[in-house]
Computed example of a mutant assay.
Amino acid sequence: MARGRPREFDADQVLQAALNVFWAKGYEGATMADLTAATGLKPGSIYAAFGSKAGLFKQVADRYVATVFSYGPQGVEADNIREVIRRWLTGAAQSTTGETTPAGCLLVQGALATSDASRDVALDLCDRRKAAQVMLAERLTQAQQAGELTADVDPRVAARYVTALQEGIAVEAASGADRETLLGLVDLAMRHLPWEA
């Protein structure tokens, strides 16, 4: 049986290079010329390896969630709900203002794609953000069962509140706010969470 020609590139390096392009320019703003320049691959190689620009972006988004957004799954492991929220928002402020990465959040900015051709990409990113919200709501439900949240607090609404702050931090970062400013917003939010007596 004939074996296919082995890939002549490091997939991790290609995905990281493509991630930086999509993160900086968004899905719609990133051209094939941008992607080939960043990855060193010809368009045919990108299509052969990833199927399409959307296929490449899906793998980039998987990488982003597993690496940049790792603060979310790590945050929900904290012992108490205040620390969960602090880690979640601090992670957002830090990840959206990296010294070697673009400002803002790939999942937020990419979801703003408006063309019909980008609709599936935008919906996928919305689903990923909703999955993060569900993860946080589940942790808030556990906190409620442990007596950290009163019965009148809907964990889903509380999770939506925290993710709205997270996404607002990302928009502020993309608009030029620096890390110190965003961490100040986190400190302000943590002074008194709205469901606390």
Rank of each mutant, 00 (worst) to 15 (best):
M1K: 10
G4V: 10
F9W: 12
D10V: 05
Q13N: 11
Q13I: 07
V14L: 07
L15C: 11
A17N: 11
V21F: 02
V21Y: 01
G26H: 00
G29P: 00
G29T: 09
G29R: 08
M32I: 14
L35M: 14
T36N: 14
T36Q: 15
A37R: 12
T39C: 09
G40F: 13
G40N: 12
L41S: 05
K42V: 12
P43H: 13
G44P: 03
I46S: 05
G51W: 02
G55T: 08
G55M: 07
K58S: 09
Q59V: 04
Q59R: 15
R63L: 15
T67F: 00
S70G: 09
Y71N: 06
Q74K: 14
G75D: 05
R82C: 04
V84R: 02
V84A: 03
L89E: 03
T90A: 07
T90P: 00
T90Q: 11
E99K: 14
T100K: 13
T100V: 11
G104V: 06
L107S: 06
V108W: 08
V108T: 12
Q109N: 12
A111M: 04
T114E: 15
T114S: 15
D116G: 11
A117V: 14
A117E: 15
S118W: 00
V121S: 02
A122Y: 02
A122Q: 02
A122C: 09
A122W: 00
A122D: 02
L123Y: 08
D124S: 14
L125H: 01
D127C: 11
D127W: 10
R128V: 09
R128E: 10
A131V: 00
A132I: 01
Q133L: 12
Q133F: 01
L136N: 01
E138Y: 05
E138T: 12
R139A: 03
R139P: 01
T141N: 10
T141V: 07
Q142R: 14
A143V: 04
Q145V: 11
Q145G: 07
Q145S: 13
G147Q: 09
L149S: 03
L149K: 06
T150V: 10
T150Y: 06
V153H: 05
V153Y: 02
P155H: 04
V157D: 15
A158S: 05
Y161T: 05
Y161A: 06
Y161G: 02
A164I: 04
L165N: 04
Q166E: 15
Q166S: 13
E167D: 15
E167K: 02
E167Y: 08
A170L: 09
V171K: 04
G176M: 10
G176T: 09
D178I: 03
R179E: 14
R179W: 03
T181E: 13
L182E: 01
G184Y: 07
G184L: 09
V186H: 01
V186A: 01
M190R: 06
R191E: 13
L193T: 08
E196Q: 14
